[in-house]
Design a protein around this nucleic acid. Structure first.
Lengths: 346, 346
DNA sequence: GTTAGCACTCTATCCTGTCGAGTGCTAAAC
DNA sequence: GTTTAGCACTCGACAGGATAGAGTGCTAAC
């Protein structure tokens, strides 16, 4: 379904105006502010058509028009200028990244902070999925008092460690041997494979210490489950309170409750994960999650070596500045992919 | 300043009623609901006195009375029953703790969750301060690719590790030797001391590797600074939205912005830290932090071996159910002190 | 010292009328 | 055939006024 040029112009004008004012847009306003070269009456006719086609809606008889979900969708798909940020803006954003951070979590938090600041909406991100990255090193470090530390290091530099109790039957030499066996068998494998297949093999070799080994393996599994990918980061949730559509305390509560749930955020971010590239825009009811009828999300994935490993996004009211946010999200993922290289040790 | 018995009863009735209804309380209401054995007219006289003394206030001429900060203070100090929770309630709370958790952070988060659920207010906690706990073990674990892992274990079971780059000049044997020296010199010392004094001593002994040692020491320092005590936990912030005093979106925003800042929470929690024992109640303007005029906080400390190491608290409107919250906070810290013993390995 | 009664005050609420923005329709102009 | 001007109409926002009700303070009687 495609609209003729003038209808497009009218729709675009309505959306732009509504995005900036949050007030229903009347025919006179458009005629005055946007130079279409026709009178309000003509615009009224066009608006009546657009309404019939479902692109705009009227809150009540004597009010102006407001874009419908369908209208926004048409705008995003066909009308919006997909511009890159200008030099000035890019530089300004990059300045935010000037403080060096060591940890992936910190990078994502910083990214979020910057995104929410620059968009004035709320932003979110998932940690990188390292299931496909490989184990560089596993080591059992003996401590006193019958305790030991299990240390996992992956090739992207992620380190996880955990304290465990040792059974009395195990001594330091055993521990070293177990370390060796585990390293020999597991090193270089990706984490997913470790979980799936190789457990049996080590089981056999370490049958003598099976009891202890069970505990250690549980631990590794647990550690892997606690992977970065399960972490979800959120920033600028309170920006939502600045939006006039959230003047109602109940709406605020519903929305913030949703945003508090990692599960919900993850679902939103993962939906976009399927796409290899580019930016995903979901508008209002297009979300699978209940309770986001009044919101739109703009998400995109970031990559390492061309492989998608996580995503970031912005959530705002359906009356969102799509053009600006798309540019920012797109730029952020590009930059994030760049940054992630530093964490991925070849 | 102490009030006569009947004035106390009237004040108590006003506060109890206002706490539960959030509406200004009239003389008739008190005469009907609270059995003082006198007529509304008499109560009106008492109320006029109480107002003159500053314990209650009148929003406008023809409205009932509302407790003032001073009224709440008198209530908390003199009128409130300091009861323990009953068996039923204690059991119900303990049930929440039935899921075993391994990490201190998780314990505090769980504590917060339970506190906010049971009080319907917002709860907060600081992580334990382990500056005075001692180092059990420090180890440099060599990995491939010129990297090593620095692992710190303290006597309370806290484990911190970090990946570092090794200079080319260092080999595995050196590393082991450095580990040994560090352990010999540092083991058993409390973390504060390590930071302060002993650095020079090791410097001398390891002068050959001074360059590397600087890096490792920086790291240890950094790790120590990242101590649990700096972490602040928060739960149930959205409960505030259920309070009628926060029907106004601007108030909500101001408050939630405050609660977002770790610095603010820490300040509130640390104020109470000075007290050895017992529960601290701060009402409205008594807070040092700006912007908490409409809130009260109830905080208490938890201990290990009789030493205060952290605190938890609840924040709600000044019209808060002090009696209930004090009991809960008090019980939580008692239980928390108990739980913490498990993390403190003798 | 306590209470009943009463006049008074103030807010919340409802109703009403007015204003203005915006529309849809029609007929005239292009 | 398309565009425009004109006009009647609709509806929400807002202000003003009337009303009800909760609560008070005061006074006089008990």
């Amino acid at each position: 379904m495609t609209l003729d040029e003038r209808k497009e112009k009218v729709l675009q004008a309505i959306i732009k105006d509504y995005i900036s004012t949050a007030e229903p847009v009347g025919s006179r306003t458009i005629a005055k502010k946007y130079d279409l070269g026709v009178s309000p009456a003509t615009i009224r006719n066009e608006m009546a058509d657009l309404e019939e086609l479902g692109y705009i809606e009227q809150p009540h008889t004597s009010a102006g028009r407001v874009p419908s979900e369908r209208g926004y969708r048409y705008y995003v798909d066909c009308l919006m200028n997909k511009t890159r940020l200008n030099q000035e803006e890019e530089r300004s954003i990059l300045k935010g990244f000037s403080t060096k951070v060591q940890e992936i979590a910190a990078v994502l938090q910083l990214t979020n902070k910057i995104m929410s600041d620059f968009t004035s909406y709320t932003s979110m991100a998932t940690g990188p999925n390292f299931k496909r990255s490989s184990l560089r090193h596993v080591q059992l470090v003996p401590l006193d008092h019958g305790k030991a530390l299990v240390v996992l290091v992956t090739d992207n530099g992620m380190v996880q460690s955990k304290l465990i109790d040792l059974p009395n039957t195990i001594n330091d030499v055993d521990l070293q041997k177990i370390s060796q066996v585990m390293n020999a068998k597991l090193q270089g494998l990706n984490l997913e494979d470790i979980k799936q297949t190789l457990i049996r093999e080590i089981y056999f070799e370490l049958s003598k210490h099976r009891h202890f080994f069970d505990a250690a393996m549980d631990l590794i599994q647990e550690t892997l489950n606690l992977n970065q990918e399960d972490k979800v980061y959120l920033a600028g949730a309170l920006n939502m309170l600045n939006q006039p559509e959230f003047r109602d305390i109940h709406k605020v509560k519903t929305l913030l409750s949703l945003l508090e749930q990692d599960k919900v955020l993850k679902e939103i971010l993962i939906e976009s994960n399927t796409r290899e590239d580019g930016v995903t825009v979901k508008i209002g009811g297009e979300h699978k999650v209940e309770g986001l009828q009044d919101c739109s999300t703009i998400t995109a994935t970031y990559q390492i070596n061309g492989r998608v490993i996580g995503s970031v996004g912005v959530i705002g009211p359906t009356r969102m500045d799509y053009e600006k946010v798309v540019s920012i999200v797109e730029f952020m993922t590009r930059h994030l992919s760049q940054l992630m290289k530093d964490f991925y040790v070849r």
